[in-house]
């Protein structure tokens, strides 16, 4: 039930954002998010509310760490 889906913000109207993932569009409320998202950001959506903005740089950094760690091991 805590299933929450990352969706891309396509427009913002005050406390409501249009979001999209794989062609599915929805409107989500922004009262709970702690950092205002911008168009193009991904947000975690749960029960009609955006609850967190996904940190793209952090995701890239994490993947890079995995790749580096694993490459090192192959050497």
């Amino acid at each position: 039930m805590c299933l929450a889906v990352p969706m891309e913000v396509t427009a913002i109207h005050d406390k409501i954002a249009d979001v999209e993932i794989g062609g599915v569009t929805r409107q989500v409320r922004l009262e709970l998010i702690d950092a205002a998202p911008a168009v193009g950001d991904y947000v975690i959506v749960h029960a009609g509310f955006a609850i967190r903005r996904l940190d793209r740089e952090d995701a890239i950094e994490t993947i890079k760490l995995f790749q580096e760690g694993l490459n090192l091991e192959l050497l």
Binding site: M1, C2, A4, L32, H46, A47, F49, I51
Partner: peptide, 9 residues
């Protein structure tokens, strides 16, 4: 019904 994820909504 739901945990801390759902209660704020």
């Amino acid at each position: 019904v739901g945990f801390e994820t759902t209660a704020p909504a």
